[in-house]
Nucleic acid binder design. Structure first.
Lengths: 349, 349
DNA sequence: CTGAAAGCGCTTACAG
DNA sequence: CTGAAAGCGCTTACAG
């Protein structure tokens, strides 16, 4: 960065630290046995006398020995690592799912390797290749844009669990929350309150979750004998900004509505601000429902009615599923239920 | 889970998939050279004729070869992996930093291994041990509770970059945002608007960031000749809930204040709801300032004035720093600046 | 029950 | 420039 001579000089001062942790051999010598024996004791693949066991354990403690993961991985052909294609590691919504994955894996000695797919097919593809190169034992694709075909093809090389779509194939398991049902709960709630003109802001038009939620919206209307009006649907971007923009569009279009269902909470946050800017009050002028039930949603003004999906649980289930798949078992797991959480952003029209 | 015979049966049907990716040897044979040569070509440690190079590249493409990371790690003594002790992988604030780390590392062929420390000394400790066992090349401790002594001690085994505190030691580099300055910006802004009775809600009492921000608050008051009143300080928990509770306490205590500075945005969200519940309006009755400038803060009602710290940039810098440290260079990096973002939650008293 | 040996897939001095 | 060989640290049939 600065002058070359300078960086060279400081390199001389503090060179790279040697990684000189203890090895199996050192422990074995200390305990007076062979490396094989130590290995077997550590892995519990043998019964030994208490004395020996104690001696080995003492040596392990003394050296603070922990088996080298790379060596073990190489010998075993597995790494106790699961690659996780996270779409956006900083998403307020998905984060909880990643946490669930982490928790679910840890119980079994596995650790997740997270990489961001950025909702971008190419990036997700790169992640998966990288994971395979790193020899992960399995991969969890937490939502995303990858084509079903590609996923199936990778599943021939490595076990894969994918969330957010329905897909069956050898070595592949999918787990999906019932988006359509969730959307129906939201819209039915509005209908029960007496609303007839209910607008909807979707995420992106081609996203499976968005399609499912739109489907639920339409079905709920239909069940109530309310005609679907395309003029009441606007497209956002899953974020606050899109919600703001889409709501302004809806408002400008002069379409009349007394309630607004948003494809997710972030969109609803944006919608809220748009309504505020136009001098409209929630829920007095417009009832508002989101989807996801983000932690913050209970603290909005007013607290937001939303559809809760336990994404954390979905993460845990994904972890279980991939472990079962790796173990050669076909997972039998059904996704966590969705549930409507009624707060103060909805009322009678 | 279910009946034993059942799970055994399905195991028979779809056993664990073999990981049979190509090896160096296969590529070498295909290209008609030795494994050494292929290795050298891949690593660019040799100049070869174009013909040979093409032959090898063709073989690599044909087999879709990617070097086995465990083997390479074992041979090289490094893994191209950096362990990251994230406190809460699902935090709306820190997530952006993790993303920055990921981006910063990728540019150099490194990948992060994230684990959650949960703001819990024991967990953080476990993470670090696990990382060392996995042979990571370096560790980034992204904030947390670990004692300085422990950190210094680990730094003898592996290079460490830690954020959120100031600490110097061999093999260790720390990076800290200027919390005190940020807090001063916030409080000065309130003072300039004409506020004299300014309350503060802190996070946890012993957290370094909280202490620094409290310090900034006090200094700004002092600079303006306003006496510090302990009755105007309440303790939250960094989350909405604590902000809500602390604000109610403040309100119930009958302490008079026209402005409220919160240790972070999530706390401010909670405060906002508390004020609303008490029939107070922001900013008419109380001006409100947060800290962090979460993406959602621009979409609060009203949009929240906050102190922005570029946590994403901090993540990137941490990545650069750890790579430099590993390379034996002493990092020269100064943390990203803080900046006040004025929105609509503050006004004259 | 336990040890010596081979092997996991790569890299890199060491010789040609 | 290129190959054969040794070695990274572990696990696990294979013999005793």
């Amino acid at each position: 960065m600065t002058s070359k001579s300078d960086s060279t000089r400081s390199a001389g001062k503090s060179g790279p630290r040697p990684r000189q942790s203890a090895t199996l051999r050192m422990v074995a010598r200390e305990a007076g046995v062979s490396a094989s024996t130590v290995s077997r004791i550590i892995n519990g693949t043998v019964n030994v006398s208490d004395g020996l066991k104690h001696a080995v354990e003492a040596a392990i403690t003394k050296f603070n020995f922990r088996p080298n993961a790379a060596a073990r991985g190489l010998a075993l052909g597995k790494t106790l690592t699961i690659g996780v294609v996270a779409q956006a590691i900083d998403s307020p919504f998905y984060g909880e799912g990643l946490r669930g994955i982490e928790a679910g894996l840890r119980q079994h000695g596995y650790a997740p390797l997270f990489m961001s797919g950025n909702w971008h097919e190419e990036d997700e593809d790169r992640c998966i290749r990288e994971f395979i190169a790193r020899g992960v034992d399995g991969i969890i694709v937490f939502a995303g844009q990858l084509s079903d075909a590609k996923l199936k093809s990778y599943a021939k090389e490595v076990s894969i669990v994918v969330t957010g779509r329905r897909l069956r194939a050898q070595g592949l398991f999918s787990l999906q929350i019932d988006d359509q049902h969730g959307a129906m709960l939201a819209v039915q709630h509005l209908i029960e309150l007496g609303h007839r003109r209910i607008a909807f802001i979707t995420g992106s038009e081609n996203h499976p979750d968005a399609i499912e939620r739109l489907g639920g919206y339409r079905r709920a209307l239909e069940n109530a004998g309310i005609a679907f009006d395309p003029g009441l649907v606007a497209v956002g971007d899953w974020h606050e900004e899109g919600g703001l923009r889409a709501t302004l569009e809806l408002l400008d279009s002069k379409a009349k509505f007394t309630a607004l269902f948003c494809v997710n909470d972030q969109t609803a946050y944006g919608a809220c601000l748009a309504l505020f800017r136009k001098g409209l009050s929630v829920p007095r002028d417009v009832s508002l429902v989101g989807f996801d039930d983000l932690p913050s949603s209970a603290y909005r003004l007013p607290p937001l009615t939303s559809v809760r999906q336990s994404i954390g649980e979905l993460g845990e289930q994904s972890a279980q599923a991939i472990l079962q798949l790796i173990g050669g078992r076909r997972p039998r797991i059904s996704p966590p239920p969705v549930e409507l959480v009624v707060r103060e952003s909805t009322s009678h029209p």
